[in-house]
Design a protein around this nucleic acid. Structure first.
Length: 507
RNA sequence: CGGGGUGUAGCGCAGUUGGUAGCGCACCGCGUUUGGGACGCGGGGGUCCGCGGUUCAAGUCCGCGCACCCCGACCA
């Protein structure tokens, strides 16, 4: 491709309104543009990079493409002879992969993904997402994907799946008499702890939800009053697991009042608590499900709301002072909890850019069976893997760039070679044109621009190999070859350029 | 959901007490340059986010709305 024909121009100035360096560089390098809706559009250079990434993923996964709903996937599997299979579905910027296998031990995705990341020279953190599911993300301060990681053993997990230890807080205390105290303007845990001069772990936090069971029988909705130690947070996913699916949304002020609680000073005391989840829902609508996190056992004499504006109870102890429908593990880790794997150090909350997710699962559909060698029906084990090519590209560029621009690894570079012609002499022009005809996969800067402009654009776009043809290089015996990831320059005779380019990098 | 910010040429931005819409980059033409974003001269390009109001006069002041960005958002 000739640069004079390429759609899209490089920008000298950094666009505002994008915070990631990779986005800034991609916009400047004419790889993509931002659109009004806050999304991105890919120019030809970007489309080629995504295309290369897609090819890399598909070939590494060694799968077969299909188009349509994933529901048809198991239809063609009748016999153990048909297994295993890897299929994939292409989105514009995503690839959804499915593995159909007879054996749950057959897990092709992780090793293939490792190969892909190696090709891209990309290091991602493997994150435990529960039930053998995994996520793969680049730790990045500006990423929006949160997980926790142990400083010491490197264990990483999503907040909902993390193994952590809640350390005791004041458990040695003697149990004291319940007491109501005035606590003006203490409608947050932080303000309450400060006012009473106690730690947040010595308070109980209340979080209220309205629960909607998904379609079907059973309780249509309910009010869920969650109690957790004040320094912890609540995992909505864990609550839903306890309740058996459905959806949660935060309760409104009116809904809180309707069950007899006081917003800002709510307490599980004196509420109409449902005794167990299986009990049929009774006529009165002020019943609440009280879910207490097991962290209520990791302390004593807590401070908690009094259901009266401006007042809290102190010395609240379970089960003496309030009832719970169920005590379960529903807390979400916060920064600084002890790691539940190595117990040596603490979990830190880390931001990242999620690139891929992997989820083994068993199909629920009765029809998803095959006949084994004995002719007996067996369930097909389906696992899925999703790779986001945009995030992959972003992570690669976040990892591989310098102050001059992108440094594309060969695996996803839109072109392999950036050919530059300097000067207007017939010799240089002829030699450059000849090279352009000979080289595969080359971007040719045939513009009448000054050397500085051309070099700066080549650095910005960041193709792996730069080849410069000029009067100077010809006089020296050929063309100058330089790799983007190195400062070394080498004059190579014109007839030896092609083998030189085909050499593996680093050579 | 709350708080703050921004909205003016393709991009980055200025625009004073209200008085003819500006600068840099990019773009077009001519010329000089050609190994690290070079220069001269000439040029084109605007729904100043939208709607309403105040005014002789609004990019500027007032009100409402929209969009985007940042920060906070487990609260009893």
């Amino acid at each position: 491709m000739r640069l004079t024909q390429l759609y899209g121009k490089t920008l000298r100035e950094t666009p505002s309104d994008v915070q990631l360096v990779s986005h800034q560089l991609m916009i400047r390098a004419a790889v993509m543009r931002s659109t009004a809706a806050g999304t991105f559009a890919y120019l030809p250079l970007g489309a080629r990079a995504l295309h290369r990434a897609r090819q890399l993923v598909c070939s590494a996964m060694d799968g077969q493409e299909f188009i349509g709903q994933d529901g048809i996937l198991s239809n063609e599997i009748n016999s153990y002879r048909d297994l295993p299979k890897v299929l994939y579905q292409n989105d514009q910027t995503r690839i959804n992969l499915y593995s159909l296998a007879a054996d749950s031990a057959h897990q092709p995705f992780e090793s293939s993904l490792a190969r892909i990341l190696k090709e891209c020279d990309l290091n991602l953190t493997t994150i435990d997402d529960g039930d053998n599911a995994k996520a793969f993300a680049l730790p990045h301060a500006k990423g929006s994907y949160n997980f926790v990681r142990c400083d010491s053993c490197g264990y990483a997990a999503t907040k909902d799946a993390a193994k952590f230890v809640i350390e005791d807080c004041g458990c040695e205390e003697e149990i004291l008499k319940l007491e109501k105290v005035g606590t003006p303007n203490c409608n947050t845990i932080a303000s309450l702890a400060e006012f009473l001069d106690i730690g947040k772990c010595q308070t109980l936090k209340a979080v209220m939800y309205v629960y909607q069971k998904s379609e079907g029988s059973g309780r249509p909705f309910g009010f869920v009053f969650v109690v957790v130690r004040g320094d912890l947070e609540v995992s909505e996913r864990k609550i839903l697991n306890v309740l058996g699916g459905g959806t949660l949304r935060p309760a409104t002020e009116n809904e809180i009042k309707a069950v007899g609680a006081v917003p800002g000073y709510a307490s599980p005391r004196e509420l109409n608590v449902i005794s167990n989840l299986q009990s049929p829902r009774e006529a009165s609508n002020n019943q609440v499900i009280v879910l207490a996190d097991s962290s209520i056992h990791t302390g004593r004499n807590f401070a908690a709301g009094a259901n009266e504006h401006g007042y809290h109870f102190i010395n609240v102890n379970y089960p003496r002072d309030f009832k719970a429908t169920l005590v379960a593990d529903i807390a979400s880790p916060i920064d600084g909890l002890r790691c539940g794997v190595c117990h040596n150090s603490y979990l830190r909350v880390v931001n990242g850019i999620k690139v891929a997710g992997y989820a083994p699962r068993r199909t629920a559909k009765a029809a998803s069976t095959y006949l084994d060698a004995q002719g007996k029906p067996q369930e097909i084990i389906v696992s899925s893997c999703e790779i986001d090519l945009e995030s992959l590209l972003v992570s690669i560029i976040e990892t591989h760039h310098d102050d001059r621009g992108i440094i594309f690894p060969e695996s996803v570079a839109p072109y392999d070679v950036h050919l530059i012609r300097l000067g207007k002499t017939e010799e240089a022009r002829t030699a450059a044109e000849a090279l352009y005809e000979k080289l595969p996969n080359v971007l040719y800067d045939d513009r009448d621009e000054s050397a500085g402009v051309k070099f700066a654009d080549a650095d910005l776009i960041g193709l792996p190999i730069r080849i410069t043809v000029s009067d100077k290089s010809l006089k020296a015996g050929g063309a100058e070859v330089k790799r983007r990831n190195s400062e070394a320059k080498e004059i190579v005779p014109l007839e030896k350029i092609l083998p030189k380019v085909l050499e593996p990098s680093g050579g």
